[in-house]
């Protein structure tokens, strides 16, 4: 019974949250209030965990809630339930897209969508950069402009940028290397 309820609640979250992973948050708070499967503090913790693991917050929270209420099977089923509605919707859209790719309206829509898409990617980059490269709290504390920029991080960033251009390694290698540098130099 709990399993069914888990799957239902997380399928609903998957169906109604539109946009990035954080769009699932309002639904997660609602589930927390309604079911008590996890607390608001658990959600806050899971945001931190999601920032330091590969998964999106919605997937992670569904796994966590499923696991704490019904063990490993619960964790797996709750996550699959979260993914289910969007898989169905994307399958329908993909079929539609194949058929109408040459349509003038679809073409026109993509003319605008492409600019929007890259604008959102840029904004996502800026949001990460704000945390990764800039140290606002240190600047507010000292008022020294040098403290505003996280010099170590900026140097690492430039090195990665050049390294990517010259070496053509997989981004995964650069991600792993930056983690090691972060640990060694105490970023």
């Amino acid at each position: 019974m709990v399993l069914l309820r888990l799957m239902f609640e997380f399928a609903k979250t998957g169906l109604f949250s539109v946009g990035g992973g954080l769009a699932t948050l309002p639904f997660l708070y609602e589930i927390s209030d309604k079911t008590g499967w996890f607390s608001h503090a658990d959600i806050a913790d899971m945001i931190a965990v999601s920032e330091s693991t590969p998964g999106a917050i919605g997937i992670n929270m569904s796994t966590y809630a499923g696991f704490t209420t019904s063990g490993i099977l619960g964790g797996v089923l709750a996550s699959l339930a979260l993914a289910f509605p969007s898989v169905v919707i994307i399958l329908i859209i993909a079929k539609f897209l194949e058929k109408y790719r040459q349509n003038k309206l679809v073409d026109g829509a993509f003319y605008g969508l492409r600019a929007a898409s890259i604008a959102m990617i840029s904004a996502a980059g800026i949001n990460v950069a704000k945390v990764a490269l800039i140290n606002l709290s240190a600047y507010q504390l000292t008022g020294n402009l040098m403290d505003l920029f996280n010099i170590k991080a900026i140097i690492l960033g430039i090195l990665i940028f050049i390294g990517q251009k010259k070496l053509k390694w997989s981004p995964v290698i650069f991600i792993a290397l930056s983690a090691v540098v972060g640990i060694l130099l105490k970023f």
Partner: peptide, 26 residues
């Protein structure tokens, strides 16, 4: 997990890499 010091340092490094990767994609 998320409050472990080593995890926080590693992720601070990863974030730098992620913004460079996004910049290059843009």
């Amino acid at each position: 997990f998320a409050t472990l010091e080593i995890v926080q340092h590693a992720f601070a490094g990863i974030r730098v890499c992620v913004c460079v990767l996004i910049l290059q994609a843009v």
